[in-house]
Design a binder for these strands. Structure first.
Lengths: 212, 212
DNA sequence: GTCTATATAATGATAGAC
DNA sequence: GTCTATCATTATATAGAC
């Protein structure tokens, strides 16, 4: 029934099809622009069947968000222990997170939508958790770099981490409108982009002799 | 104030109230989540009166977008000719654009929404124009810095400009969910943020002796 | 230009058969 | 679990009076 296991759902076969269809449509058009009929149609089922699995439209949306975020943060763990120097570590993490974003573009789109909706459907809390996870790891890495005297200590690690997340998120978000600018070639290759970004950022944070 | 250049509408008194109300609501909740009744109520008028001034909901939305973008890009001109060194110039421009974003938050919210909507209401074209204007100016400035041997020549000016725009846009977008993190203080002051960001970026692009 | 009243279609959600 | 049929509500949009 539609009771609430706090982290997970039963995920029967029909339920999965509904969830998948809903995720596609919610990511594409946003919560209000998607009708239950459209979801039912894409999931090859009927509207009442959706209501059999989910209490209402909000409940369905929440389930979609939770699934999306859970999938996104899973891959993050594999990036935690990377070999190499400190700078390589940070660079690899940033590139991995960007690839993660692009791999789960529907989840990302959903999360970005939430940040723009003010009186939100508590999906904003979920977004905060997901982004906060990435964010706090980045902050910790940069702090460590400062303690090892690799990075300038006057730099706010929260701000530096924010710049990395910002570059990754906005890459995803602006890609559709950047593709039409012919001189911009980095937008076609996330690895090229990430390398270029981290080159500037790490160089900018780097502890060196000459003054600024 | 409402002197109409060329392609603009009459902007009678009632029309302005409708446009303003629509902009507020569209920015807050998005196109589909806003009803004509709600707009009429906020504008202190009736629904049929909106249809007297605008052909349909899409037409109203387009008018809102155009007005928003026109207002945003107007202030940009004043930033073009800033005194000081090259680095000061770039820093001032970036800070000015961020202030511009925050000053016209409804316009910005509308534009960001457009980037997330795929089969969009041709408002995406408008967004591209508005962002492209800022973007191309930044690219030109960075290029000039490279020609004057102030910035490293191996850096893609398009990518560097993108990083600045990205930092500014995402600052605006993520502010709501960053405010709850107590250690993050830069989010409360756009000038502090912009200064920190440009410090890292300019330092990262700076041409200096030691290799990377 | 602005309104009341209304047409028409689509929405979220339910009842109840199988 | 899945469906057909239907509810009440709300949406966009129009007709026509003033």
């Amino acid at each position: 029934m539609q009771n609430e296991p706090d982290t997970k759902r039963s995920s029967s076969s029909g339920e999965l099809a509904i969830l998948e269809a809903a995720e596609v449509l919610f990511a594409q058009k946003g919560f209000d622009a998607v009708s239950m009929s459209a979801i039912a149609k894409l999931a090859n089922t009927s509207k009442p069947n959706i209501y059999h699995h989910f209490k209402n439209k909000n409940d369905l949306y929440l389930a979609v968000m939770q699934g999306a975020v859970r999938r996104s943060s899973a891959l993050l763990d594999t990036l935690e222990r990377e070999p190499g120097t400190f700078k390589q570590h940070l660079t690899a993490f940033a590139a991995g997170q960007l690839n993660n974003i692009l791999k789960h573009e529907r989840s990302t789109q959903l999360m970005l939508r939430e940040t723009l909706s003010e009186g939100s459907r508590y999906g904003q809390e979920i977004t905060k958790l997901a982004m906060g996870e990435v964010y706090s790891r980045l902050v910790a890495m940069i702090r460590q770099g400062q303690q090892e005297n690799e990075f300038r200590k006057e730099i706010d690690p929260y701000l530096a981490a924010f710049m990395i997340v910002s570059a990754n998120m906005f890459f995803f978000q602006a890609a559709p409108i950047m593709h039409s600018i012919p001189e911009v070639d980095f937008i076609d290759d996330a690895n090229v982009y990430s390398k270029g970004v981290m080159d500037v950022l790490i160089n900018g944070m780097f502890q060196k002799g000459d003054g600024k």
